[in-house]
Structure formats: structure tokens, C-alpha cells
Simulated assay, not measured.
Amino acid sequence: MEAVGRDERNEAVRRVVVGVTGTPGNLSALHRAAAEARVRDADLWPVLAWQPPGGELGSRNGLGPSALAACRAAAVERLREVLNTAFGTLKPGVILVGHTVRGTPGAALVDTARDPEDLLVVGTGSRARLRRLVRPSVARYCLAHAICPVLTVPPSVLKADLDAVHRRNVWRIPLDPRELTP
């Protein structure tokens, strides 16, 4: 049997694009994207979207090229930190092509996953009503605008438990020992 090169294969998915932020909930999406890339023998494209301070309007009002270059360099460093946190010395087992894209997260992901053969992986994030009002949903944007399949990854159960403990600590609610037993 003759070996077939990557360019000669007829793959259903060429790239798995995933948005990264570095939050604990987002790490679930990043690991799921890596698993999907391994299964499909596709490249993993983690994308970190960035904007200048004050958004695009702020960049028009006095941020010079050196400030924008510093913002981009900070985004590149943040992407490296996130990938080191996610994978450490263990590599994801696929070709990893990190990208920093200037723009809003949803638009950056949809623009990067522009091929119908790509797979776009996004975390669903918090489902709290107040947070949905303040911050638009990247997952909803991607589902509405992407031309490729979109895989949404719900928050980790451990993340929900961590949030519950955090709320308990903020409100100074005592721990009931019965909650510790299975």
C-alpha cells in the first residue's frame, strides 16, 4: 500500500479552528478542538482575537503604529501563554498553527474558518442572563455567520463547581458538610 501525502488526501476537514482566551472554560474547547484535529488528521488553528485599547474607534484617535505593534505583540505573547498552559510540554499531536487576529472574536473566527471543509470549535461560555446582556455571544455569532460546521463546547462541569465555590466565598455562605459526601 502506498502512503498518501497530506495534499493528496481527500479529507472532510482540513483545519480545526478554535478561539482561545485562556479562561478555564475556554481550555475545554481548546482540548476538544485538539481531539477533533487528531481524529480528522487536520491542522489545529488556535485563534486569539485582539483589539487596540478603546476598540477600533480608540485606535483612530491617536494610537500610533508603535502602540498597535505593542498590542499585537502582547496578543502573540498571550497566545503562547495559553497554549503552554493548555498543552505544557505535551504537544497536541497535530500540526499547531497559532494566529492572532485584530478584530472582534466572532468575526475573527468566522474569517479564519472561511473554507466549508474547516471545523470551527467554540466554547459556549457563561449562560448567565446578565453576562449575555453585557457581552454578546461569540458562539451565537459563529453559528449564525460561519460557512463551515461549528462545534460548540459547553463549559466544563468543574468550571461550574468552581464558580459555585467562588459565589459561596463572595457571599460568605458557610459550607454544609453534607455537600462533601457523595
Rank of each mutant, 00 (worst) to 15 (best):
R6G: 10
V150G: 02
E2N: 13
T112Q: 01
L120W: 00
L63T: 02
R131H: 14
G98A: 03
D163W: 12
T100L: 03
A33T: 00
G103Y: 01
V4P: 04
I147L: 12
K91I: 14
I173E: 15
T23H: 08
A34K: 03
A12T: 11
S66V: 13
E179K: 13
C142E: 03
P155R: 10
P46K: 01
R127L: 11
G93F: 00
R127Y: 09
P177R: 05
L79Q: 08
G64F: 04
G93I: 01
D7S: 10
N169G: 15
L68C: 05
E56Q: 12
T100M: 01
R32C: 10
A164N: 06
V138I: 11
A70K: 14
P24T: 02
L79T: 09
V16P: 00
V121G: 03
I95E: 05
W50G: 00
A3I: 15
A34E: 02
L48I: 02
D7L: 10
V138W: 07
R132P: 04
V165Q: 13
V97C: 07
A69I: 10
A107W: 07
R40M: 06
D176R: 08
P182M: 11
R140L: 10
D118P: 01
R132W: 09
M1S: 13
P149S: 12
M1H: 13
G62H: 05
P53N: 06
R9S: 08
A12E: 11
V94N: 04
A67N: 07
W171C: 13
D176H: 08
P136L: 07
T124M: 09
N26Q: 06
A35M: 12
R178V: 15
L44A: 06
L30K: 04
L83E: 00
Q51D: 10
F87I: 03
A139V: 02
L151M: 11
L120F: 01
V153I: 08
A144D: 08
P105H: 06
H99T: 12
G5V: 07
S28A: 14
R14I: 11
P53F: 06
L83C: 03
C142G: 02
S156F: 06
P53W: 05
P92Q: 02
T21A: 10
E2A: 14
N26W: 05
G93H: 02
D176W: 09
A73G: 09
D43A: 04
P155H: 10
L143A: 09
V97T: 08
K91G: 14
N169D: 15
G55H: 02
C71K: 05
V82G: 07
V39W: 12
D176I: 03
A29L: 02
T104Y: 11
R72Y: 05
D111P: 00
A34V: 06
T124G: 07
H99N: 15
R114V: 09
R129W: 10
A42P: 04
V17G: 01
P65W: 09
R6T: 09
P46D: 05
E36A: 01
V138N: 09
R178N: 15
R102F: 07
V17P: 00
G106L: 08
V47Q: 04
A128S: 14
L151T: 07
S126K: 06
G64Y: 05
A108F: 00
V16F: 00
R15I: 00
D115H: 04
V13T: 08
E117T: 12
